[in-house]
């Protein structure tokens, strides 16, 4: 995926894939909502160096159906 080739990715497809990967057990990439409100996928090794809401834990909460 493209975010493995760059430090951050923000395309909606990249973001969607990160959420799916998190549910599937891939912890290599995390989601951050930065101060501009942008949702970005970053390598886990860089998460602690970034400001913003760590959205991964919230994203991993299951959505319910109906």
């Amino acid at each position: 995926m493209s975010f493995f080739k760059k430090n951050q990715a923000n395309d909606c497809t990249d973001v969607s894939q990160v959420i799916k990967d998190q549910h599937d057990g891939n912890r290599g990439v995390e989601l951050i909502m930065n101060e501009d409100g942008e949702m970005v996928a970053v390598p886990s090794s860089q998460v602690n160096q970034m400001d913003g809401i760590k959205a991964t834990e919230i994203a991993k909460k299951d959505y319910y159906s109906y």
Binding site: I19, M33, I58
Partner: peptide, 8 residues
């Protein structure tokens, strides 16, 4: 935040 993710 969950809504924000839903929108993406």
């Amino acid at each position: 935040v969950k809504v924000r993710i839903w929108l993406e």
